[in-house]
């Protein structure tokens, strides 16, 4: 089946849209711009659909997104925004739980945003994009050791921040 087939294309679109949005955010792209860039990325795939096999579409998409990101300027000051994963296991009426979750989310966002851009990037890719150290090393052109160093720096920063969140 060709990528030019609209059903095949739609499947690819739905499979990789969210991972691409998160990938670009992790790499420091401002959230308001990621959607446009993701559309542009898929448009590139559409224009080249005859040249790309379905199983190659993932690497095509991520390479294209990376290139577009380099074209666009890199926003190291962008702030992240988290959302609770669905489905929720706890009932929505549980006000106390909701409140704690909201508070935790705000703390976590602030902690991540105050990391150095290099460790923030690695932390986000590893924890929110399901990328292994090896994947991150390849994607950023670093050694695994360097990725581990940045991850350690991120965790250390997080451990320090936690102390200020107040004991539970």
């Amino acid at each position: 089946m060709s990528v030019c087939n609209q059903n095949v294309f739609k499947k690819i679109y739905f499979r990789w849209n969210e991972p691409l949005q998160r990938f670009l955010q992790s790499k420091g792209m401002e959230r308001s711009k990621t959607a446009d860039l993701v559309q542009e990325t898929f448009l590139r795939l559409w224009k080249n659909c005859a040249k790309v096999l379905p199983e190659q579409s993932k690497s095509f998409l991520f390479t294209a997104a990376n290139n577009l990101l380099i074209d666009a300027y890199r926003q190291s000051q962008s702030r992240i925004k988290l959302q609770p994963r669905l489905p929720k296991t706890v009932s929505l009426e549980d006000g106390q739980y909701q409140f704690e979750m909201k508070e935790f989310q705000a703390h976590l966002e602030a902690a991540i945003d105050s990391m150095t851009p290099a460790s923030k990037e690695v932390f986000l890719l590893h924890r929110f994009n399901e990328m292994s150290y090896q994947d991150i090393a390849t994607s950023l052109g670093l050694s695994i050791k360097a990725v581990e160093k940045r991850m350690t720096k991120a965790l250390k920063h997080l451990a320090v921040q936690i102390q200020d969140w107040g004991s539970k």
């Binding site: 949005q21 959607a35 979750m101 976590l108 924890r127």
Partner: peptide, 12 residues
């Protein structure tokens, strides 16, 4: 606890 969160995205 962090695993309960994901980066917010535009609805696909």
């Amino acid at each position: 606890q962090q695993k309960q969160f994901e980066l917010a995205v535009e609805p696909v």
